[in-house]
């Protein structure tokens, strides 16, 4: 019998070793697995590479991990929304590396990884600083740059409903990066607001099929 439900954050997160690359869902505050990140901060896993759209705000979530000295590198598209001083200070102090890329390129690099594709050509960023050091090609008059798939060892995502097979739904625009991120990691851990029985999520309404998910845990399961 398949049962991907784990009973505590510790059980879900203790498999993440120091030095792992961890993909983290969310855009703005919507769809960020804040509860899992708070537990990861308590566990204290170090030397992490975080792949996410932003680099955390205030002193919670990714910013909490940075402030706690757990992050070696951030791979993202926009590290400087309002209230992102924790990242800025750590970056300027040389404590955290930054790889910044266009948001659509971040999404598509994750998709390529999850879909088993190799590098792909995108017009985004052609002729700009982000093209430096990458293969560039003009096809039918349009300039493209070659971008690589972006894999993660783990993905921490936030969903709304989940069942024991790992099927997920998301609330409103909290979906954002979470579905594609679930595909791009070897091991995807989803925090959910509620666990439901198999079949309660209509097959047409499943947004992430369970095959992409290794474990689900209630947001409120805490226990770290």
């Amino acid at each position: 019998m398949i049962n991907k439900i784990v009973s505590s954050h510790l059980e879900a997160l203790e498999q993440i070793p120091n030095g792992a690359s961890v993909i983290v869902g969310g855009f703005g505050d919507a769809g960020i697995p804040f509860e899992l990140l708070a537990s990861l901060q308590k566990i204290g896993t170090k030397d992490l590479t975080i792949i996410s759209n932003n680099a955390g705000t205030r002193e919670i979530g990714i910013a909490g991990l940075i402030k706690n000295g757990q992050v070696r590198k951030i791979i993202c598209s926009h590290p400087r929304p309002p209230l992102s001083d924790v990242f800025a200070q750590a970056y300027r102090a040389g404590k955290v590396e930054l790889e910044c890329m266009p948001q659509g390129t971040l999404a598509e690099r994750l998709r390529a990884a999850g879909a088993g594709l190799g590098p792909f050509f995108t017009p985004t960023g052609y002729g700009t600083r982000v093209a430096e050091g990458k293969e560039q090609r003009v096809v039918d008059g349009v300039g493209y740059i070659l971008e690589q798939p972006l894999h993660g060892d783990f993905a921490l995502i936030k969903a709304h409903l989940g069942d024991r097979w790992g099927n997920l739904t998301y609330r409103w625009a909290a979906r954002n990066f979470n579905p594609v991120m679930s595909t791009a990691a070897k091991n995807t851990i989803a925090q959910v607001d509620r666990i439901v029985e198999l079949g309660e999520i209509h097959p047409e309404h499943v947004m992430t099929p369970g095959i992409f998910v290794k474990s689900i845990v209630l947001a409120g399961a805490g226990n770290v």
Binding site: S77, A88, Y91, R92, P123, T124
Partner: peptide, 16 residues
Amino acid sequence: PDAIAAIGGAMDLAVG
């Protein structure tokens, strides 16, 4: 000198 890169969706919007 202390500017931090922040691309977001701008490059995709500009080309697309």
